[in-house]
């Protein structure tokens, strides 16, 4: 079975639809069309360093960071509880974490509008209690909520899959040696679950940084994230050069952090989803 050549059709596909398109992004990011034809330029990258665009990047990183932290704080205890239950219950509960992902993600996000808007379900409930209505939509909180809601399962699953593999006798040994439950968690369970935490953080942070739908729907277009900015360049303003430069910067940022994360994971036996 020494036939490597049967992979060649795929190699052609790979070059055509993955490699060349990425080269085209690089190409468009360093050219501009002038009267003399196409010339090399770095102005698209220079433009990125204008304060307004740096702000957009920082805002994307910041909102994604907050969402990731919340996902971790909410998801870790859930993963622990799910991992500690008896066998039959566990399968069903785990399934319940996954099922929401089977509904269209735009629609799930849109459903929050019904809940949060001025005359929405939550505000109706609040005014029913005799309290003043609140502005729940079109602010940073709503964007973060949308991110946490959409990406929480991506945090729970990898942590769960690592926790479930921890050898119970290690925990018993720690208890026999006099550790109370807090010490067991701090010194045994948490360090052993770190690979799952790392892949959970990756799987939440990456899509949160690059989203442009959640910020549009729940932020009402006031919270431009880097994803929104890229989309605008390609679909509305037609400035492909700037858009390509932005995509390239974001891609490098993400691949770079992925490389660091995966290096960490390799050292500590990863806890991926699949």
């Amino acid at each position: 079975m020494k036939k490597g050549w049967i992979a060649y059709p795929y190699v052609v596909w790979l070059i055509m639809f993955i490699f060349v398109p990425l080269l085209l992004i690089v190409f468009y990011s360093v050219i501009k069309t002038t009267d003399q034809g196409i010339v090399f330029t770095l102005e698209h990258f220079q433009r990125f360093f204008e304060p307004i665009y740096i702000m957009v990047l920082l805002r994307s990183l910041y909102l994604a960071l907050i969402s990731t932290v919340i996902c971790l704080l909410l998801g870790y205890p859930l993963a622990m509880i799910l991992a500690s239950k008896d066998y039959r219950h566990k399968r069903v509960l785990l399934l319940l974490v996954v099922i929401p992902m089977w509904m269209n993600f735009l629609l799930r996000t849109y459903a929050w509008l019904t809940l949060l808007e001025k005359n929405g379900v939550i505000n109706s409930f609040i005014s029913f209690l005799g309290l003043p209505k609140m502005e729940l939509l079109y602010n940073q909180g709503a964007v973060v909520l949308g991110m946490v809601y959409n990406f929480l399962p991506f945090m729970v699953l990898p942590i769960y899959s690592v926790l479930i593999k921890i050898d119970k006798s290690i925990i018993e040994a720690a208890e026999d040696l006099g550790a109370n439950s807090r010490v067991v968690f701090r010194k045994v369970i948490f360090p052993l679950s770190l690979p799952g935490v790392v892949s959970g953080i990756t799987m939440v942070y990456m899509p949160a940084v690059t989203t442009f739908v959640i910020s549009r729907l729940l932020g009402g277009g006031q919270f431009t994230l880097i994803g929104n900015l890229i989309e605008q360049q390609f679909l509305y303003t037609g400035e492909w050069g700037f858009g390509s430069a932005l995509s390239l910067i974001m891609m490098i940022l993400i691949l770079f952090s992925m490389a660091i994360m995966s290096k960490y994971e390799k050292e500590n036996e990863g806890g991926g989803l699949f």
Binding site: L22, I25, G227, S244, S247, M251
Partner: peptide, 8 residues
């Protein structure tokens, strides 16, 4: 990111 794949 999906958006980069899509745009490319």
């Amino acid at each position: 990111p999906d958006i980069v794949t899509g745009i490319s």
